[in-house]
Design a protein around this nucleic acid. Structure first.
Length: 146
DNA sequence: GCCAACGTTGGC
DNA sequence: GCCAACGTTGGC
């Protein structure tokens, strides 16, 4: 899951311990979250749009997906006039902090790893803020942090 | 349903 | 700040 550290970083999650992942407004990313995520799932926390983009740590999904309340709030930048409480459009999950890597696993390092050639986030032009990762990809990345 | 214009993302 | 790659919007 991507986040701009100037908005919300792994250190923010460490401080808060838990956080709702609100503000996803892309259908494909929402579908991954809604259809694939389950409590207990491990999450790679990725810092984007920053001096050193890369995987900054680990989190865990701690509940079923549920409606993102910011879509109903006219004062929120994530307000969506098409959404109603009867028919919510956008979902979120709650995350719990697990680990902050001592060093960021940089995007450059991810690109150098042959086992990660299929990683969605490395595909040209990919901008999705939430993407699935295979078990092997996950293990390869976590090993790099050791 | 097509497509041009526009907005956003995100690395560099 | 630039720019490529998308996604979204809205006229037709």
């Amino acid at each position: 899951m991507k986040s701009e550290p100037s908005e919300y970083s792994i250190d923010d999650l460490k401080r808060d311990t838990k956080a709702p992942w609100y503000g996803v407004r892309n259908y494909q990313a929402r579908n991954f979250m809604r259809d694939l995520m389950q409590p207990g799932d491990a999450v790679l926390f990725y810092h984007s749009s920053c001096p050193e983009p890369g995987v900054a740590g680990l989190a865990e999904v701690i509940g079923e997906p549920y409606p993102d309340s910011t879509q109903f709030d006219p004062k929120s930048p994530y307000f969506d006039p098409k959404a109603t409480k009867e028919k919510p459009c956008w979902m979120l999950v709650d995350l719990e902090f697990k680990k902050r890597f001592e060093r960021i696993i940089s995007l450059a390092a991810l690109r150098q790893e042959k086992k990660l050639q299929e990683l969605i986030i490395l595909r040209p032009g990919n901008r999705l803020s939430i993407t699935p990762v295979t078990q092997k990809e996950f293990e390869t990345i976590v090993q790099r942090a050791a």
